[in-house]
Design a binder for these strands. Structure first.
Length: 426
RNA sequence: GGAGGGAUGGGUGAGUGGUUGAAACCGGCGGUCUUGAAAACCGUUAGCCCCGAAAGGGGCUCGGGGGUUCGAAUCCCUCUCCCUCCGCCA
């Protein structure tokens, strides 16, 4: 959520930055609503002040055993007025809140301005796409041929956009999770956390998925339970309604979780293979930072994620998202895109964002410097990285002419020394 | 799922309708004393919102929401969470 006072004092700037995101009108009639709300509030509060005063006077009279019936009559009158003004103030407040909840974050000044992904800016590349002396296959052909991946039985037991892994395929998924967690905890200073995969709606509101994006989520019927679309949701909410000490920051967490996404509205997109699934596993990085350092923390978080791909020898590039491509809660985002030989293009495998105080305001995440007044901290998150997409990137990038797949050096200890996937029966 | 008990400030914990936003203790901060520290003593110590340039003024908050009342931390209803016992269960 944007800061109410900041919006009030910088209306034209805020409108302009939102327009850069492609949303010139989200603020609607903010000024009127804001003015009305404050006027109604003042009406109600001045009556309350009067009521408190009279209440004391009644108490004093009663103590002296004197007659208070005139004042009590006035209190009755006041009570009625207060409920009327309260109702008006509540209605205005509710409208303003509903409006503000649906307004996305403002882009940082360093974000390239543009209407969509075509304006994204490539920052750097790592690695050279491999030259194949044969026609590289897609993972959806390689996996089933190796006997480690099965879409048909997954469709039978769950539906489209699910997969079943067998043998070394399942083990590769687990190896990747362990490799990433070990790297981030041992070399990058993150603390591992294993959160619930189901959360309540307040938690989803805190990170910005609700109220606007409910249709992207899976909801458990009959309860206020939702499947998490990313570990960012439970981990960022860990300190909701708490005040942390400034010296405790930055806090750095990494979490392995399954992620569940309805993928509503993506019909026909990435229908083949593992690219877009209803369930996938991911190692997520989350940081709680001082506002002063959050952009440095974004750079280091992005590097931490990229290190995973470097160690695995996967060619990739870093892209700064343009204003029009930014996620709802983010002020600045770098995507990591891994090279996929089958499609001959770079594909998103990680998304690293600085949400500044946007989520902190929604989730009431604060910190305090010494005795000073508490402030909202900055939250960051990024995939470190998506495991399913890494799995398929390894198959495609390390495939051999005979259909086998070489295993990157760093993963071999996690796979019992295995250096090559060869066709296996399942 | 059934029965019972609970939720008060950073912590422990008093408080059953009217100067209680809240005793006391602990902790924190400042000070006195001390070469320094400890101890002792004194003082201080919630958050949010509205008006205001500021000084200041006002409002709300005793788990959340609703109700009773002139007035609610205190009474009633409801939801959430925690604890104990029973059942079920990885």
């Amino acid at each position: 959520m944007l800061d109410l006072g900041f919006v009030r004092d910088n209306l034209s700037l805020v409108r302009q930055r939102l327009a850069e995101r492609g949303l010139p009108d989200v603020l609607g009639d903010f000024e009127t609503l804001d003015r009305e709300r404050r006027a109604h509030l003042a009406d109600a509060e001045s009556r309350r002040a009067r009521r408190n005063k009279i209440s004391d006077e009644i108490a004093a009279l009663k103590k002296r055993k004197e007659d208070a019936s005139a004042l009590i009559a006035e209190m009755r009158q006041l009570g009625a007025e207060i409920s009327r003004y309260d109702a008006e103030a509540d209605a205005a407040d509710e409208k303003l809140r509903e409006l503000l909840k649906r307004v996305p974050n403002l882009p940082h000044e360093s974000v390239p301005v543009g209407r969509d992904a075509s304006a994204n800016q490539e920052i750097r590349r790592w690695g050279e796409p491999r030259q194949f002396d044969f026609e590289p296959k897609a993972h959806w052909d390689l996996g089933p041929a190796l006997g480690i991946l099965d879409f048909e039985r997954a469709a039978k037991i769950a539906g489209a956009r699910f997969a079943v892994y067998y043998g070394m395929g399942a083990r590769l998924e687990r190896a990747l999770a362990n490799f990433m967690l070990d790297l981030h905890t041992r070399e990058h200073g993150y603390t591992e956390v294993l959160p619930p995969f189901i959360v309540n709606s307040a938690t989803l509101y805190g990170t910005g998925q609700l109220p606007k994006f409910a249709e992207d989520l899976f909801k458990v019927e009959g309860d206020d339970f939702w499947l998490i679309p990313t570990a960012e949701v439970p981990v960022t909410n860990l300190y909701r309604d708490e005040v942390l000490s400034a010296d405790a920051l930055p806090l750095k967490y990494c979490a392995w979780t399954a992620c569940f996404r309805s993928e509503a509205g993506s019909y026909g997109k990435d229908t083949r293979g593992l690219i877009r699934q209803h369930q996938f596993q991911k190692v997520e990085l989350v940081k709680f930072s001082l506002p002063d350092h959050s952009y440095d923390e974004l750079e280091s978080l992005t590097r931490d994620a990229a290190t995973v791909l470097e160690k695995l020898g996967l060619p990739h590039r870093v892209v700064a998202l343009s204003t029009g491509d930014l996620g709802f809660s983010s002020a600045k985002t770098y995507d990591l895109e891994v090279w996929l030989p089958s499609s001959g293009e770079y594909k998103e495998i990680s998304s690293c964002s600085n949400c500044e105080a946007f989520q902190a305001r929604r989730a009431n995440l604060r910190f305090r410097r010494g005795k000073a007044k508490s402030e909202f901290l900055h939250t960051l998150n990024g995939s470190g990285v998506a495991i399913g997409r890494t799995w398929l990137a390894i198959l495609e990038n390390y495939q051999q002419a005979d259909g086998s797949v070489m295993i990157p050096e760093v993963l071999r200890p996690y796979l019992g020394g295995c250096n090559r996937l060869s066709p296996q029966p399942n």
